[in-house]
Nucleic acid binder design. Structure first.
Lengths: 230, 230
DNA sequence: CGATCACTTGATAATCCTCAATCCTTGTGG
DNA sequence: CCACAAGGATTGAGGATTATCAAGTGATCG
């Protein structure tokens, strides 16, 4: 275990694209004082489907997949969280166990804000409360879109769409560094099928492959494929 | 058009299983004064995907499907709302257009509470605000479950699961009166496939069919089939 | 430099969709 | 009250899509 000084929200590199930007200086200080931060290595589990939430996680640096186990042990990735995003709020607010697991896609820094502190903040800060509500609405929207896509859009269209989404999500890296298996889990198919489609896209010059990472070079083309089935 | 006296929340048959049960007498009166109610006949559209929300709908009597259009015009049913349920809150709170349509499954009575009134209520009544938040969390949970099921659980398992869910949703009727096409839309398949599976379940004595409606007679058996693929 | 993990490819098979034809139920107008 | 129209339910055949299984190859890392 690396020695590591607990970072404070005030200095956090993600403080601007985080809902905590609705907080006052005092509130931020209180959060900083009460939270506890951790380094999670690639592949490490942040929280596990079925366990009880003790607070909410705030992703300071890195990327995390939020996934559920589906039939025959296949993993459905619900969303990919980036720095500044919260994790585990649904279970905390909904007062239930985690319905999905969170797993680091790379080495990350994640802080845990205790439940009491988070609820207190929601009570006190209306902007924060409203912001959380908007976040919940966005999550609903994207889940329902994904649901509809998986139901009726063929894999080819879903992967085209996913690559466009991921291209935006990974914008600071210029490349999508997801495993083929994770990409498959993201669109609800299996590794082999994902590989075949990705390989098609490469031949069609819609993407380029550098080692394992994918670089989108023709987003319009992907968009067209995605919308072919609308 | 039938003449029809505007019902008031205080007398609404669904007032107990409605979030408005967190409201004070005064608040309820204010809502009643500001809302406008309507009869929607079976098949009638309550609101349309893509249009702008003017308020939230409260379902006083009847059942409504909330559905999105998927690829090649297929309809994905996101959820089925019952009396006491709200409709259209996601778009209102998320400040977006409707991402799905709501269509009456039978003759219904639905009230429209103006946006301003609803937002005012959220501001004033913390219990109501909290209740809405819980509702949003529940919607996320069920959307994500459905998403995962559609991704990896075969149709047979999905229909078994849906019949159990619908059996509860339709509890006051003892029968599930969905069209086969709606059932198909609910689980993300096509009419013919749904028909075949339903017919299998009938032969396996898990359900009975009376005219068009489905009656679950062996929920455990359906549950077993649903979980076969977990 | 072996070993592990990710990626790739091909053959095969299961699942599910599409299309087309037909039947049954329900409601409606004469 | 009956005939007919319309919509829903059903069935079968055929085919497309996607999953599964097996057998590799290439990359990465201690």
């Amino acid at each position: 275990m690396v020695k590591f000084t607990q970072p404070r929200c005030e200095q956090c590199g993600s403080k601007d694209n985080c809902l905590f930007n609705t907080c006052t200086k005092d509130e931020l200080q209180e959060i900083s004082d009460s939270k506890s931060c951790n380094i999670y290595k690639k592949g490490q589990v942040v929280f596990q489907e079925g366990s009880l939430p003790l607070g909410i996680f705030c992703l300071s640096k890195g990327m995390v997949k939020v996934a559920k186990l589906g039939s025959s042990g296949k993993e459905q990735i619900l969303r990919i969280a980036k720095s500044g995003d919260f994790l585990g709020y649904r279970s905390l607010i909904g007062e239930s166990r985690y319905r999905a697991s969170a797993i680091a896609l790379e080495d990350t820094i994640i802080c845990l804000i205790p439940k009491a502190e988070f609820l207190e903040l929601m009570r006190k800060n209306a902007m924060f409360y409203n912001g959380m509500m908007k976040v919940l609405c966005d999550v609903i929207e994207s889940a329902e879109n994904k649901l509809t896509d998986i139901a009726y859009k063929p894999v080819r269209g879903r992967i085209a769409e996913a690559l466009i989404l991921l291209d935006k999500a990974f914008d600071d890296r210029e490349q999508i560094t997801l495993t083929r298996e994770d990409l498959a889990g993201f669109v609800g198919t299996v590794k082999e099928t994902a590989i075949r489609v990705v390989s098609e896209f490469k031949h069609e010059k819609l993407i380029e492959i550098d080692k394992r990472s994918i670089k989108v070079i023709n987003p319009e083309g992907l968009m067209r494929i995605s919308n072919l089935y609308d």
